[in-house]
Simulated scan of single mutants.
Amino acid sequence: MTRSLPFGALAAVLLATLLAGCVSALVTRPPPNTYDLTGPRELPKVSRAGRAQVLIPAPTALQILATQRIVVSRGSLMAYYPDAQYPDTLPNVLQARIIETFELSKQAHAVGRPGEGLSIDYQLLTDIRTFNVVVDGSGMVADVEISARLMNDRNGRVVDFKVFRARVPVTADTAPAAVAGLNQALDQVLIELTSWALTRL
């Protein structure tokens, strides 16, 4: 005579089976591929560059951009490339690249993050308006748009404001091709942004 398991025992067996499957998936699934944003490797010399100390906070951004995920848009649909990420949230990565670009110029007295103890002359306040690959009927482009305000830290007055944008063709609808295009567009934006800011310090 076959005896069935009590309901409680059967539920426990099913739960254990499900948990085992979840743990197995967590253990065996590979981590996402990580793609970095590199920034420019050389800059044109800027005339009239000052010797001020500049604070560079992390840029602000909408929540869909303020993540490690790589954004692709198709019309009004915003999505992420699967199994691909930046090494940190996009605002933190861009903050690091802006600082590195200023350091590469060797034309600012000092640049740094909040909390590093600099005696600040100016703050460079930025906002990431667009940072994604756009897919439409005409093809694919990497679209980067960053607004910048240069603020005198002594009196809180905004010295100047400008929006920087670059669009670069993307060769394929894949994460590596997307990041390659975004890197090219970002290089253009960072060169223009840094040159603009240096002439106003």
Rank of each mutant, 00 (worst) to 15 (best):
R167Q: 15
R167M: 13
R167I: 10
R167K: 12
R167W: 00
V168I: 14
V168R: 15
P169L: 06
P169R: 06
P169T: 05
V170Q: 09
V170G: 04
V170W: 08
V170D: 10
V170T: 09
V170Y: 05
V170E: 11
T171A: 15
T171F: 05
A172E: 15
A172G: 11
A172P: 03
A172W: 04
A172D: 15
A172V: 10
A172M: 07
A172R: 08
D173P: 01
D173N: 13
D173W: 01
D173S: 09
T174G: 00
T174H: 01
T174F: 02
A175N: 03
A175W: 04
A175H: 06
A175Y: 03
A175T: 02
P176N: 02
P176I: 04
P176K: 00
A177H: 06
A178T: 07
A178N: 08
V179M: 10
V179R: 09
V179W: 03
A180S: 14
A180V: 07
A180W: 06
G181D: 02
L182R: 02
L182S: 02
N183V: 00
N183T: 00
Q184P: 00
Q184T: 12
A185E: 12
A185G: 13
A185P: 11
L186I: 08
L186N: 10
L186E: 11
L186D: 05
D187Y: 06
D187W: 01
D187E: 11
D187C: 03
D187L: 02
Q188W: 02
Q188T: 10
Q188N: 13
Q188M: 11
V189T: 07
V189M: 03
L190I: 03
L190S: 06
I191V: 15
I191C: 10
I191R: 15
I191D: 09
I191E: 14
E192H: 09
E192R: 13
L193Y: 01
L193M: 14
L193V: 06
L193N: 05
T194A: 11
T194C: 10
T194H: 09
T194I: 13
S195P: 14
S195R: 15
W196S: 14
W196A: 15
W196P: 11
A197Y: 12
A197F: 11
A197K: 10
